[in-house]
Computed example of a mutant assay.
Amino acid sequence: MSTQHTPTAAASATAPEAVMNPVYRRRLLQHRIGMLFSFLAMGLGLFVLAWILLTLIVKGFSAINLGMLTENTPGPGGEGGGLLNPIIGSLMMVGISTLISTPIGILAGIYLAEYGEESKLAQVTRFVTDIMLSAPSIVIGLFVYAIYVANVGHFSGWAGTFAISLIAIPVVVRTTDNMLKLVPSGLREAAFSLGAPRWKVAVTVRLRAVKAGVVTGVLLAVARISGETAPLLFTALNNQFFSTNMNRPIANLPVVINQFAMSPYDNWTALAWGGALLITFSVLALNILSRTLFKQQIPG
């Protein structure tokens, strides 16, 4: 009896497979074609990125020396020179902008996550934040020029700081808001059950639980504003000489790189490549640091 049922069982087992084989082969072909195009797109992107980085390293590394970090920018046709004054100017503006945008962004993010669940103001704030995140930086530069520079009658470091602060604040707000939403509800309920007020739960419980993610948002904001050129062209402009007066035009790396890269002088072009390499590796270091901090602590 067993020998009679064996062929029938084998036939019944292979029949569905024979029916599904064409469908399976078509789906497998589609999967392989999709994966092929995905790998080609990824390879193309990595190739272009590697090409840009290699060109930047080859042309910029030769300009990295002690003189570039200790000497001021040279005049037209001058020999040698460095990028000391734009480096100091960029550090001042980015540093002050970070001090301005960090508390504003974190407090706004706390409000959105803790108090703005059903608030119309919170909905408007999120909408405006999303618009500012996607707005071209040159628009922000023109806005600051119209409301500040045109009224005071001169460019200044404060105007540049204000412009890049408007770029950094939405990044910090959105990151803080998203990170606070990752805190488990049980943690909040436990704090409320102990009699803690809502503001204390938000600051000492929720914010502390996601502090690594909030710091990540701040570092990403700093990385973004470090290379912004367009808003500074309309606000801080540039200064060929060393100056720490924030109420006057002040040198900064993005504008100097833009100016030197289009110049006919070889030493200016070399300094532009060196400054671009310096900004690139600084932003790369900040991104690596932010991702490292983000991986160290994830709320669960």
Rank of each mutant, 00 (worst) to 15 (best):
F127E: 11
Y145S: 05
N239R: 00
D130K: 11
E114Q: 08
E117N: 06
S290G: 05
M246S: 02
A191I: 10
F155G: 10
R291C: 08
A236N: 01
G141N: 02
P249A: 03
L54H: 10
V172L: 14
A11L: 04
R198M: 05
G77V: 07
V94M: 09
R208V: 04
I64R: 00
L166Q: 06
V48W: 07
Y148Q: 12
I288N: 14
F260V: 04
W268I: 06
G89P: 10
G78C: 07
P86I: 01
R27N: 12
P16W: 10
A276Q: 10
A41F: 14
G186N: 08
P76V: 11
A236W: 01
F234N: 05
A236Q: 04
A122S: 12
A168M: 15
L44H: 09
A9I: 00
G186Y: 08
I131T: 07
I140C: 11
I138N: 00
A276N: 14
I88K: 07
S137I: 13
G77A: 05
T102V: 02
F162M: 15
A108Q: 04
N21G: 12
A108V: 00
G186S: 07
A159P: 12
S226Y: 05
V201A: 00
G274Y: 05
L56Q: 08
I131P: 01
V19F: 14
I96Y: 01
L133M: 12
Q296L: 13
N239I: 08
A261E: 02
N65V: 02
F155R: 02
L207T: 10
N85Q: 11
N72H: 04
I104T: 03
P249Q: 02
L112S: 05
E117Q: 08
I167G: 01
A270D: 12
N267G: 05
F47M: 14
A163Y: 07
I288A: 15
A196T: 13
F242G: 09
I104A: 04
G116E: 03
L133T: 01
P22T: 04
V283K: 15
F294D: 14
F241N: 09
L194S: 13
N85K: 01
A209K: 09
I169N: 02
L286V: 14
T102P: 02
R25K: 15
F192V: 09
S101G: 03
V215W: 12
